[in-house]
Amino acid sequence: MDLVWIWGEAFLRWLHVIAGIAWIGSSFYFVHLDLSLTREGPLPDKANGEAWQVHGGGFYHMVKYLVAPPGLPSELTWFKWEAYATWISGFVLFAAIYYAGAELYLIDQGVRALSPWSATLISIGGFILGWAVYDGLCRSPLGDSETVLAAVGFLFLLALAYGFSLLFSGRGAFMQMGAIIGTIMAANVLMVIIPGQRQVVAALQAGKEPDPVHGKRGKQRSVHNN
């Protein structure tokens, strides 16, 4: 059993690292792609910009549609599984180490006398609270100003970090904050970006004009994830 645990933990750690690299790497690529878009010359109908790139012995012609193209291609590549794999592997690791070993890693009796179950429930509640407040801020009028939203969001994270430092061990509080930020990022993909894109696809398939709010909201959350 010890050997199974050792190899299982190693597999999860590597899966988490590799999936995270794939996720953040693709996100960085699309940020770069957006910054390299040009509007020179004729563009297809409803296109917002284009970019020519060369890599691996070939040329790539990228065209971005700010809301949606006039029609859908037969195949679409969805960028989501990198985020899901990163969060799932990370949460399983977090649970296996910090929940199963809460008395050793998550709890410091000198900080707060917590039972393993209460510490686990507080931790999970922190994930839910972090996402709920962040999502609420983005959907509120504060979300119209990225500067104000960033300032309020930063203060919220500081408050969370201080609160968890009064509940958990130093190591536990540090990892809890990282897990909350990772949860917010993954939830952006699962709860906002992908559902919005699916609604755009559904509108196009129904012959309707897609609501531009989905693209705007998805872009905002995608930038936040970087």
Rank of each mutant, 00 (worst) to 15 (best):
D2Q: 13
V4Y: 14
I6G: 08
I6V: 14
W7I: 12
G8I: 01
E9L: 15
E9I: 11
L12K: 05
L12G: 02
W14G: 07
V17L: 10
I18S: 02
A19W: 06
A22Y: 13
A22P: 03
A22Q: 04
S27W: 02
S27E: 09
S27G: 14
V31F: 06
V31D: 02
V31P: 00
L35D: 13
L35Y: 12
S36F: 09
P42D: 14
L43C: 05
P44G: 04
D45M: 13
D45K: 14
K46T: 11
A47G: 02
A47W: 04
E50M: 10
E50I: 11
Q53V: 12
Q53M: 14
Q53A: 14
Q53N: 12
V54C: 14
V54S: 15
H55G: 11
G56I: 03
G57M: 06
G57P: 12
F59D: 10
M62E: 15
M62R: 14
Y65Q: 09
Y65V: 03
P69F: 02
G71K: 15
L72R: 04
L72E: 01
P73F: 08
E75S: 12
T77L: 14
T77V: 15
W78Y: 13
W78H: 11
F79P: 09
W81C: 01
W81T: 15
A83E: 05
Y84G: 02
A85P: 08
W87V: 06
G90A: 03
G90C: 03
V92E: 01
V92P: 08
I97C: 06
I97A: 11
Y99I: 14
A100N: 04
E103V: 03
Y105K: 05
I107P: 07
V111H: 04
V111W: 00
S115G: 12
S118C: 09
S118R: 12
A119V: 04
S123T: 01
I124C: 05
G125I: 00
G125D: 02
F127G: 10
L129N: 03
L129H: 08
W131N: 08
W131G: 04
A132E: 07
C138F: 07
C138N: 13
S140H: 00
S140D: 05
P141M: 13
S145A: 04
E146I: 11
T147C: 01
V148F: 13
A150K: 09
V152L: 02
V152F: 05
G153K: 03
L155T: 04
L155P: 08
A159M: 02
A159G: 11
L160A: 12
L160H: 04
L166Q: 10
L167K: 10
F168G: 06
F168T: 01
F168M: 07
G170N: 09
R171W: 11
G172L: 07
A173D: 02
A173P: 02
F174L: 09
M175F: 10
I180W: 10
I181Y: 07
G182I: 00
A187L: 15
L190N: 07
V192E: 03
I193W: 07
P195V: 06
Q197P: 00
R198L: 12
Q199W: 09
A202D: 10
A202M: 06
A203Q: 05
Q205I: 09
A206T: 00
G207M: 00
K208M: 10
K208S: 07
E209R: 12
E209T: 13
P210C: 04
R217Q: 15
K219C: 09
Q220N: 13
Q220S: 03
V223R: 15
N225D: 00
